[in-house]
Amino acid sequence: MAEYKGVLIFGEVTNGKLASITTELLGCGRNFADELKEDLCCLLVSDKTGETAPRDAIVFGADKVYTVEDSLLKEYQGETYIQVVERLAKELSPRVILMGQTPVGRDLAPRLAFRLGTGLSTDCVDISVDSETKLLRQTKPVYGGNAQAIFICDAMPQLVTIRAKTMSPRERDDSRKGEVIPTKIEINMSPIKTKIVEKVKEEVTGIKLEDAPVIVGGGRGIGGPEPFKTTLKELADVLHGAVGASRPPADNGWIPEAMHVGLTGKIVAPEIYIAIAISGASQHIAGCSGSKTIIAINKDPEANIFREANFGVVGRYEEVVPAFTTKLKELLAG
């Protein structure tokens, strides 16, 4: 019977830099590793992992960083990436594997769990080590956020994906020491049955949702694509923010899918989230509840969004928002 030891993080690199979710995973992984007195390892997979990202993984808490480079790993593809993580997970046999609840993590983690024959909790917002059993208590929102569940997995390794912005990274510590271990893993092309034939970018202009300090979110009640480009955009511009949406505007093609906030969209945590003509379904709130201040504008005084918001105005947005924008302009200029 193999011994399971240590914590392994599946790291992600964007534009040569460690993704913010990965520093968050390293922060919480470091705490477990210390508690268990075991190593924290981080895996980085790409066509070129570079030097900055592996070094930063150490700076943010890793003891060992395994880098796997291959031109076949340039873009994410489930069938190639699974070969790498399966091999490494089997070789290292960690007690715990942490991944981000990101587009890659959502696709990769279930494949890995079933390959390894273990359980998985996705989209966890809290995890802790049970002092008696040393097993992870895995807390995850369920029923669209209407309830939370705590799970325990007694199969090994214990595999979880973590929701973005729920864990705190450590402060950078440039004096931290660790080991970067370049690792060769042969990718077998014979089982690959999928082929990416084309990638199409959907233009999103302006500030990225995840980075925006202010987000103006529009819902089904906006009624069509136009106001997203006028009424909502003008408000966002005054506050140097970005425009987002609930799911129906994305489903209806009023806005690109990349602007949709919620359980199955982006998880955002801006200073200010302004929900306009959004009813406040739990699945939407799941994506914006980390915002510092939530402001709701809705014509229905009973809308659930008023249970989530700090400030609200009851009224038709067509009347409320332009006056709000004009007054803000005035106040911010003066």
Partner: peptide, 23 residues
């Protein structure tokens, strides 16, 4: 629950009052 509803004579005024409140 802690939502503060900002009011006004008209929806437009409520909108303007919201800006003032936030300031």
């Amino acid at each position: 629950a802690k939502c503060e509803i900002v009011e006004g004579e008209s929806p437009a005024e409520a909108g303007a009052n919201l800006a003032i409140k936030l300031r």
